[in-house]
Design a protein around this nucleic acid. Sequence first.
DNA 1: GAGATTAGGAGACTCTTTGGTCTCTTACAA
DNA 2: TTGTAAGAGACCAAAGAGTCTCCTAATCTC
Lengths: 219, 219
Amino acid sequence: MASAPDRPGIPEPPGRDATPVRRRGRALEQAIFQAVFDQLLEVGYAGLTMDGVATAAGTGKAPLYRRWSDKKALLSDALRDRLPDADDVEIVGDLRRDLLAVLRFMFSACTVTGDPALQLAKAEADPTHDVVRARISAPARRMMLDVLRAGEARGEVRPGAATPLIARVGIAVVVYQNLTGRDGLDDAFIEQVVDEVLLPLVRDPDRAAPGGGGERPDR
Amino acid sequence: MASAPDRPGIPEPPGRDATPVRRRGRALEQAIFQAVFDQLLEVGYAGLTMDGVATAAGTGKAPLYRRWSDKKALLSDALRDRLPDADDVEIVGDLRRDLLAVLRFMFSACTVTGDPALQLAKAEADPTHDVVRARISAPARRMMLDVLRAGEARGEVRPGAATPLIARVGIAVVVYQNLTGRDGLDDAFIEQVVDEVLLPLVRDPDRAAPGGGGERPDR
DNA sequence: GAGATTAGGAGACTCTTTGGTCTCTTACAA
DNA sequence: TTGTAAGAGACCAAAGAGTCTCCTAATCTC
């Protein structure tokens, strides 16, 4: 890096130019949090260093360790500071609007300062991710879409339901379950997803369910 | 030497007891892969070291570097070796069974050797995860369920659809989208999820959709 | 306002961890 | 018997966490 004569990415605190401005307290803290997310975006979680954060914030490591005992604490605090507040979600009593509101809340959490938060996880598994995407995610989505299209052709799936978006619903639920809650991902769960989510979502409500193996085994 | 009196977690290759058995080729490779996953499970991705893998496999680092140029390559290969094969998924032409098959494929990928693969990501973001769960995931699920129950009470949601599982469908799709594909997570996507997944899944097919704002804006 | 006090910016320093290389001896396989 | 590769571990260098010191800007107190 190092663009100009000195000090590349420093926030240039709200002061004159060449004048050395020394931030304090809350202002400095905010600058540090910002630096954390900038770094996260730039080098990923794995590449996050205290030196890096300090430099990006235009400060030294001392002020960091004066506030937080270690890297972990800093990151937690930064996150806490930036994440959206669930209390801000307005539930108005209209189904569609409320569903949108909750999902937008998730969305804003996913995109705090441009990327991190939930996406943190991603950066790590770098080498992993390529393999997993190629070997698992991509084929799974493709297969799922094929299954839906075939079902549509047979009349088992309502017309228009065989979309890429719907194809990834089941997958998303499984992955999400795997990511959260250590337990809870087992075959019973899989069946539940199929019977309580996918089939109801995808079947033609007109035709009665064509008998077969699984009419909501209840659970 | 040195396999007899000490050395705790060594696979003890298929040979007699105190006799030092020296694995080669494929056998050694498999032992190494196993060690990778053991370590992953034990210390997480962040704590994974070449020394650790070598020790767990009961070998030295030399054989590792003789096979793989670096840690990344080793991990990728281990994954490639263990991940399930999409070609093994049997699509038989029955909607429910096929949906199950695809989801089970995802499931097996999520639980290779007990944990890693997709879950790798998780271990990393440790400090993150606690905060995110408390501040985002948990409240989002709770809110979503509340929204559904309220809708059910109003008759907008079909009876029985206000379940914890269904409540997390939308969330899962958003998180999944965030985890995969850098792009594609924007407000248009959110609306699409609501209009093409959640509402169809949750609404009472009997009552015509009560007008309102979004009758499948198509997209 | 002047002087005292607090906390910031900068960076040197220590210590540990770990990736990666290399060597040496010896078991296994052809 | 002989070549190849395994097991063991020493060794090196880079990187990064965390500590500490120095000097001074901002802020507080009188």
